[in-house]
Amino acid sequence: MSYQNNYDTTSYNNYGGGGGGGGGGFMPGEGSQNSPSGGRKEYKDDSLRPVTIKQILDAQAMGEEFKIDNTVISHLTFVGQIRNISKQATNITYKLDDGTGSIEVKQWVDSESVEQTNPATVRLIEGIYCRAWGKLKSFHDRKHVGAQIIRPVEDHNEVSYHLLEATAIHLYLTRGPPGGASGASAVAVNGGNQQQQAAGIGHNAYSLASYSAVAQRVYEHLRQAPQSNEGLHSQDIAAKLGIDTGDMTTAGDELLNGGLIYTTVDDQTWALLEAD
């Protein structure tokens, strides 16, 4: 009897263990969550950039990707006047002109919804301003934008708003965030006509002026990001700022040679030489 009793207990425990095994069955689930997180690098880089058409035309091709202001782009938004509309069976191509250039914007037609005409599409006629969202594509070295959405501009202040927003983002990416030392350095780079600035800031700004935009951004990040006295690893900075490894190495060398930063635990971990 006592044996039987033991057996019962054991089998119950085993059953419980089996339940635990069921919990283990969750593991593949976790595994499958890992694979999207493997693609999270791209997701993290996903952004929506307001741009002028000139910036799109000037975008540098980097294999499959494009860069504007040395930053990889994914989604773009811009405002332009429709110059031409060409309707095909599978897509509608709009030629948009915003005064800075013109580009073709293709919107694929969903064959199933052809019957129901989109009221926004009907109002897209030549001469009107519209806003488009989409991704830059290149086909036989000809750039076009594959648009998800194109809608008419209702309030024409959106044209001014968009161009100012595009300017603000362009300045943010090329000169760093507004205010602070980078703002001062941007002014110094711009014209060097701010010599009446406070001596400390003025000196800082002047000394940064000879560095590349990327180096200035790295410096600014090191100055502002929370960190231990070991500083930051170059890969972390590169990831945060969306700079590629080659540019990062160049920027690091510039700042190291200039004596603005120094290496700490290893060659790739940098801290500011001058503590604020």
Partner: peptide, 21 residues
Amino acid sequence: IDFTAASAVVDATHRYKEIFY
């Protein structure tokens, strides 16, 4: 139309013309 915004655009156009013309 907000003409102050519009003239800010003109200012930006010539100050940062690398993205405009």
